[in-house]
Simulated assay, not measured.
Amino acid sequence: GPHADGDAAFEVRAFLSDHLGAIVEDPVTGSLNASLAQWLFASGVVSGGYIAAQGRCRGRNGRVHITHDESGRIWVGGNTRTQVEGRLQGIGPA
């Protein structure tokens, strides 16, 4: 919904199952914000770029920057921190 503090247009929260019976909250979700942006732009709720806040209830202060270009593509940006890094071997064409 609308964000109360004024530094962001919306406050976004994402809840999902941990597949063990509990509902957990994702602190900041780029894919959720991209999907939500498609709806917000298509419905006319927003017409230009905006910032979405996410994670405050989880002790995070995430900010996701949303824009769209002339072709209608949604762009999601913001600061990131790498949590896991690795390489898969033996997958794909030889």
Rank of each mutant, 00 (worst) to 15 (best):
G1N: 12
G1C: 10
P2I: 03
P2K: 04
H3Q: 05
D5Q: 13
G6W: 09
D7M: 13
D7G: 11
A8E: 02
A8T: 05
A9P: 11
F10N: 00
E11C: 05
R13Q: 03
R13K: 04
A14V: 10
A14N: 02
A14G: 02
L16W: 09
S17V: 01
D18R: 00
H19Y: 06
L20F: 10
G21F: 07
D26N: 09
P27K: 06
P27L: 04
P27G: 07
V28I: 03
T29S: 07
S31L: 09
L32P: 01
N33D: 04
N33K: 01
L36A: 02
W39M: 02
L40E: 01
A42I: 09
S43T: 13
G44C: 07
G44H: 07
V45Q: 12
V46C: 13
V46Q: 08
S47M: 07
G48H: 10
Y50K: 02
A52T: 06
A52P: 03
A52R: 00
A53I: 03
Q54K: 03
G55E: 02
G55K: 00
G55P: 01
R56I: 09
R56M: 08
R56K: 11
R56C: 06
R58S: 10
R58M: 10
R60Y: 08
R60Q: 05
G62A: 08
G62Y: 00
R63W: 12
V64H: 01
H65V: 14
T67I: 11
D69W: 06
D69P: 00
E70F: 05
R73W: 11
R73F: 09
R73M: 11
W75D: 13
V76H: 06
G77L: 13
G77R: 14
G78V: 10
R81P: 09
R81L: 15
T82H: 14
V84N: 14
V84L: 15
V84W: 15
E85R: 12
G86Y: 10
G86M: 08
G86T: 07
R87L: 15
R87C: 15
Q89L: 15
G90Y: 09
G90Q: 11
G92D: 12
G92Q: 12
G92K: 12
P93S: 14
P93K: 14
